[in-house]
């Protein structure tokens, strides 16, 4: 390390510390996601099916988002309904 580097480096956070912090968050996230994320596509499909019994929607109208904060998980579900919904009677 030379003199110029010495002053320049001390101004910002060391990149190794940044790397470690990023990895800690990432690995914790990847460890927890296995079985949980596996069922999300099927859940989305099921929701689409149920809602389609009543309103005409397309697959891209259902948006799902999973957020994790510490031990708390929030599943956000957004369904965009068509502008003038034509109610559809459930079969039967």
């Amino acid at each position: 390390m030379n003199l110029i580097d010495y002053f320049r480096r001390n101004r910002t956070k060391k990149t190794a510390a940044v790397a470690k912090e990023r990895l800690q968050i990432l690995l914790a996230h990847e460890h927890g996601e296995g079985p949980l994320r596996d069922y999300l596509p099927q859940l989305k499909q099921d929701i689409l099916e149920v809602v389609s019994r009543y309103v005409n929607i397309r697959p891209e109208d259902v948006r799902m988002h999973l957020e994790r904060e510490g031990n708390c998980e929030i599943l956000e579900l957004n369904i965009t309904l068509p502008e003038s919904p034509e109610p559809r009677r459930a079969a039967g």
């Binding site: 060391k14 190794a16 790397a19 470690k20 990895l23 800690q24």
Partner: peptide
């Protein structure tokens, strides 16, 4: 580079 804070240290990798 570890001493300069530019590379993950052994302890960092072990902890991860």
């Amino acid at each position: 580079r570890v001493a300069a804070g530019e590379m993950l240290s052994i302890d960092d990798v072990l902890e991860l």
